[in-house]
Design a protein around this nucleic acid. Structure first.
Lengths: 212, 212
DNA sequence: ACGGTCGTCTGACGGCTCGTCAGATACTCT
DNA sequence: AGAGTATCTGACGAGCCGTCAGACGACCGT
């Protein structure tokens, strides 16, 4: 189950090299946060990591490859969120669990913000690798949400006109994007608490058919 | 009401220069679509526009300034969408109008995709100018949607726990982001028609309190 | 301890874009 | 036609990209 790590020339790398590679990834994350998503330079990353620019290219063919590796790592933090959707929400009391999910997703998103934004950019542009990593991350949640909708439909709580998969994707879209607006929104009239409650209400209703 | 256009050195520019400036903006749009959002070079823009690189900097201090101008222009196409939200949706038959709004917004979004993505990136990063232009564009719709929610609440159609402004923003977020997922989604199980119906259902319910 | 070997790292380079001048060019008006 | 202004450009220093050939250093066998 443990993949050998490779350098760009194909050779299997040892312990020292793995540490260097990791230092480069850490530095990339640091600079993504410090300089913003569009202004990260390879030179700066290597400076930050205390290495020569050429070292970077020994482990990543380009900057995107490093971002991709970080996006892969982020999947591990998204996976546990599925547990908060089990079992399906089916009584008004489950609204509390919806709230917990919203909170957990918000934490996940803010933790990985820069990497996820870049991942989405590249995936939207059509890059196959970034599409794949995004799918693997999101399908975990989307599939589960779609099941919740389907169950709600068979139990008559949710209208049959809703497409379960599309509804699930819509909820993910809403969560993702609204979290980016968060700061600006709270400057324009809706407190974070109000945003949280509103997200919870809409999410809970869409996935369970119930009102809060 | 008509602002004089200025060069970067502050002088008011004449007709020929306005045309050149416009050619540069057109070229920027072309390349944003051709090369993707992250790979547009000033040199390429001027090549495309048949001008020297230095000419670009006569009208825009940097690439962002040109994008900002394009984002300003996009507002004109977002404004008319407000009309589709007047008067408020209050009967099941109004679902048809919600559908029309979803379609119109989808058209607007795909028309301006590249510019809007960059606008959001810069705005999310905290850039004041991009924040301002995004607010001016989105507040038109968000304010109107918030009014619809408020009305629905006074008429007892919508739960009072929903924050009108946050709910409106959540709907915008859902629309924006889901449209970016559109292609991938239709490859994974939900036809565009199903996505459209699902968006309509959720939007209609959130803003009117009614089922489709 | 010592030289050899292989894995890892780096200095230095050509090629490119950026953004800025000073000066060339094109238009306008008399 | 010629003066004057508006507009454009060639050429440049600076900085990043991505690639080599070779330097370094950790570990091995003797």
């Amino acid at each position: 189950m443990h993949e050998e790590m490779l350098a760009t020339d194909g050779r299997i790398i040892g312990e020292r090299a793995i540490a260097t590679r990791q230092r480069l990834l850490d530095a990339t994350l640091t600079l993504l946060r410090r300089d913003g998503v569009l202004d990260v330079k390879v030179v700066d990353i290597t400076r930050e990591a205390g290495a020569a620019p050429a070292t970077f290219y020994q482990y990543f063919p380009d900057l995107d490859a490093a971002i991709l590796a970080l996006a892969e790592a982020a999947i591990d933090d998204e996976a546990p969120l599925v547990d908060l959707l089990l079992p399906a929400w089916s009584t008004p009391a489950d609204a509390e669990r919806a709230r917990a999910f919203v909170d957990a997703y918000a934490r996940y998103w803010s933790e990985h913000y820069a990497v996820l934004v870049l991942r989405n950019l590249r995936a939207d542009e059509g890059d196959v690798d970034f599409r794949s990593v995004r799918s693997r991350a999101n399908l975990l949640l989307v599939r589960r949400m779609a099941e919740m909708v389907k169950l709600g439909q068979t139990e008559g709580r949710i209208a049959a006109t809703l497409d379960p998969f599309a509804a699930a994707a819509a909820m993910m879209a809403m969560l993702e994007r609204l979290l980016a607006y968060q700061n600006e929104l709270s400057r324009r009239g809706s407190s974070k608490a109000a945003q949280r409650e509103t997200l919870t209400t809409i999410l809970f209703h869409t996935l369970s058919g119930l009102a809060t």
